[in-house]
Design a protein around this nucleic acid. Structure first.
Lengths: 150, 150
DNA sequence: TTAAGTGCAAAATCTTTGCAAATGT
DNA sequence: ACATTTGCAAAGATTTTGCACTTAA
């Protein structure tokens, strides 16, 4: 039972990599594993902390870049301007990562959540501006931090 | 006529500095001058390019940081994650720079515009999330770039 | 006069690049 | 076997810190 679910999780990751013509390697699987585990977007420093020296820092940068280029991950900047990465919900066309969902950033723990359910409103812009995508970032206190405050 | 308008512009900057208990210095006036001149948000590298070596790079960082802390400027990250700065429209309470207006980022020239006229819609979030501010960034092609494409 | 602000040098980060060795298909 | 990917070392870029000198009030 357990080995089955682990297997399928890994197989899913392998399929994802192969679909994008990427070889299945240890660093890539590790990164996918950590990121898919977490509810919030993950930064390079976070990944480095979790993975330790099992994965070289440079490799980490390269893995994240490839994943973003291929549309496996999308990049969001947190309140401090640090890049964080989250799995793209569906098929992202390569290089066009118009954020198609709302992000929530907690000003207390600095976590970035992807809120796929929330609908994005239309934005009116001045004449002459062509809008291709609308990125929305709600800033506040996340559920976790709110309950901790008590 | 010309000297009058120049004078009032500088006086305005001086008043702004004094209001925040900041001394009126050459680097600070230079930064304010450049930023208030431009329609789009300005990055540190941009400022460095414009100001040349008349202002030390370290001073530039410090001026921008103080201005942000005091609520004179607000910080926006462009599509590459580079910090850009724009004048706060009205009185920003210190340290609380909830972006109270919509930003537009041009994916061609990478400029960030502050659209003060556009109203911000309310965003529904999952239960347990407290929203304090909503940041909206419309991405597309700005008026300038559109006309150049022709 | 004196606290605040600047400029320089140097440290600390963060990110990228080049290349030889290792790995996946 | 061969192209890809990795890891290390080193370069490049960005941002911060410490401290003596300068400047605004």
């Amino acid at each position: 039972m357990q080995s089955r679910s682990l297997g399928s999780k890994r197989e899913k990751a392998e399929r994802l990599l192969r679909k994008h013509n990427l070889k299945v390697t240890v660093p890539r699987l590790s990164v996918l594993s950590v990121i898919s585990e977490k509810e919030t977007a993950t930064s390079q420093p976070d990944l480095e902390k979790v993975l330790g020296k099992s994965v070289d820092r440079v490799t980490l940068y390269r893995v994240l870049n490839v994943f973003e280029e291929k549309g496996i991950l999308h990049k969001i900047f947190d309140l401090h301007g640090t890049a964080t990465y989250a799995l793209c919900s569906e098929e992202c066309p390569e290089h066009i990562h118009s954020e198609d969902h709302v992000h929530f950033t907690c000003s207390k723990c600095n976590s970035v959540y992807c809120l796929n359910e929330v609908t994005i409103p239309t934005i009116e812009t001045p004449i002459g501006f062509r809008v291709d995508a609308v990125g929305i970032n709600a800033v506040g206190i996340c559920a976790q931090c709110q309950s901790k405050v008590n």
